[in-house]
Amino acid sequence: MPVVMDADRIARTLTRIAHEIVERNRGVEDLALVGVRTRGVHLARRLARSLREITGHDVPTGALDITLYRDDLMRHTVGPQPLVRRTEIPFSIDNRKILLVDDVLYTGRTTRAALDALIDFGRPLGIQLIVLVDRGHRELPIKADYVGKNLPTSAEESVQVRLQESDDREEVILSAGAEEGGAA
């Protein structure tokens, strides 16, 4: 299984994205990071640390679980329900620019669900999308504002991001064989 990003590459990529965030927004005032569970949350926390090193400012960081907003919920008449995890956004998103963070951008369906969920928390000034890997094959009109790596894939392949915080490993791998479970 080819490793397309290793630990160093992931670290450098996140540092680069942090600099792009500062450049594009001319600072980090009014920004907040919201990670999509599970790995988007880890990436959001790492970006918050980088932003503090670069600017000396703390950027509020939250966690979003999109399960209850999925478009495939209740579509299968038989089968287990996806596990719901806790959403934690301990700040107001009103009049803030929200940086939405996910590990892999694929069909765009997760991002659609995340946008709907975020709007239930208030009216942000704007939402920008950050992904570590964009693997193509969009099914919805969604585009990332910050991309760690563009990775051309076929629909038969699967992309797995493994991070120290949840997987005891640090790598992005591309493997043959279809994705297991929901839309990424």
Partner: peptide, 23 residues
């Protein structure tokens, strides 16, 4: 455990999620 996630919904400005739409 699921109820812990559900409890947070009650503290949102919009206390509603679309999970059981159409049921």
């Amino acid at each position: 455990d699921t109820a812990e996630a559900m409890k947070e919904i009650g503290s949102r400005p919009i206390k509603k999620v679309p999970a059981l739409r159409g049921k």
